[in-house]
Design a protein around this nucleic acid. Structure first.
Lengths: 261, 261
DNA sequence: AAGTGGTCTAGACCACCGG
DNA sequence: CGGTGGTCTAGACCACTTT
């Protein structure tokens, strides 16, 4: 006995996409979910959770897999996000992240009328892995200071960062309160080091491993990777960062004069 | 009758992830697929296709959905990619895209020993949509030149671009062969306009609509959006671009002096 | 303890691509 | 037209979170 391909969704089938023969069910579901999202009112400070998957299944007369396809689409668009095993939530608007503004995280967030918080996961001196050593012009295995933090906007964990510092530049820096102070402020005021040049590398990946766990991100969801190498006023490399952002949490921007005119 | 939760995979279960109680099947599958990918030899110029899904199902004794979960993971990591309804392929290494190098697409690609090609989809004068009008300092509905192109690296379509130009800057530019010439070269040599400042906006989304279709990207797969507003040597906005890249095709880079020291 | 999302089974039909 | 990937059904068990 073959299961008939039913189309049980009782939704208004607006914009039937001329040029495309059939609109997949998940696409119509997507529209219904968007209406649901709008009806929930999206711009609060409290995390706004969607109904349980099984409830949405009942409401829309569909299957778990199809529903999750539609949710995954919206997740990719950045309209909703997941906390691992906790549910689906409406995504707040993106933080505007100007790569060349030279702003510390807290300043950047607060300048956009949002609340920043930082959680220190670890701060210790460790032997440099090869890829870190290369960036910092050190030899593999030599000591570097490693700082791992999680940062949140309005209580939502959005960023996992690993810093690696050249210890010859920042003796004793691990003794400061690294959850409260911006690193760049410490660099300047305690060590008279200014960041005068930044090399960025940006790419997209997925969460998984420590970064995913720290952000409560479901393994496999999209992440924005930002790697940064910082030089001081003398052109010397002093530290590097590896940032992993929830992809829907930021919009990157920069304004500059291109070379090779 | 309840289906027993079998674990039929006969793969070496390397690194059982201490600290995590159970490794999901798709995770072990992922490793098996990685081995398969390595065995296929990844760095050719010919697109290297994976076996059909049903064949991989048989080979790994698993289900379609589980297999696709694993494949989707690898797709998110940028190790493999899809062409819509055509199959899964091994992803070539990423193009290094220096945002501030001021290089035209062909020059950038060829400087990395790869082959660039461009397909012109449309070139016409159209009324400006609101968001374009705003960027170009025009009023909504006023005429702008619109150029849509698809660009490929080593034959693989990786980039969909829409340009919108201020027609007062570039009269008659649509009559040039826009598949062969770089726009910036035309700007300079035919109109004596140099791009002296660029405003970028970067974000991640998913394919769907014209961009996805033009790249043969499966709807819902990850895309890197790059929006660009170009100013000439007099500070005047002359055009803007909307680029959609296959997320695995590029790695963005830039080096600059941050403000707000 | 109840409920949630994460994972998985074992199929089926359909649209589309390539030969 | 055969084979492929895209979509969908109708469930189940499990790990984990929350009550």
């Amino acid at each position: 006995m073959s299961a008939p391909r039913t189309q049980p969704i009782a939704l208004e089938c607006h914009h039937s996409t001329p040029g495309s023969v059939s609109t997949p069910t998940w696409h119509r579901l997507r529209d219904a979910l968007l209406a649901l999202i709008d009806s929930l009112g999206n711009n609060r400070k409290r995390p706004c959770r969607l109904p349980a998957e099984r409830e949405m299944i009942a409401r829309f007369s569909t299957t778990r897999i199809t529903l999750r396809d539609a949710l995954t689409q919206l997740e990719g668009e950045g309209r909703i996000y997941r906390e691992n095993r906790r549910g689906w939530f409406i995504a707040p608007s993106r933080l505007h992240y100007d790569l060349l503004a030279g702003l510390a995280f807290h300043d950047m967030v607060e300048s956009q009328q949002r609340q920043a918080s930082t959680l220190l996961l670890s701060a210790s001196t460790v032997p440099a892995p090869l890829h870190i050593a290369r960036r910092l012009w050190l030899s593999e295995g030599s000591a570097v200071q490693r700082i791992v933090r999680v940062r949140a906007i309005d209580g939502r964990r959005v960023l996992y960062v690993e810093h690696h510092l050249r210890p010859d530049c920042f003796p004793g820096i691990l003794d400061f309160d690294l959850a409260q102070h911006s690193l760049t402020a410490l660099y300047r005021h305690e060590y008279a080091i200014r960041i005068a040049r930044v090399d960025y590398e940006l790419g997209s990946t997925i969460f998984g491993g420590p970064a995913g766990e720290a952000l409560h991100a479901t393994p496999g969801t999209a992440a924005q990777r930002i790697t940064r190498i910082n030089r001081d006023q003398n052109g010397r490399v002093v530290d590097c960062d590896d940032e992993y952002w929830r992809h829907d949490a930021i919009e990157l921007a920069l304004s500059a004069v291109p070379r090779g005119g």
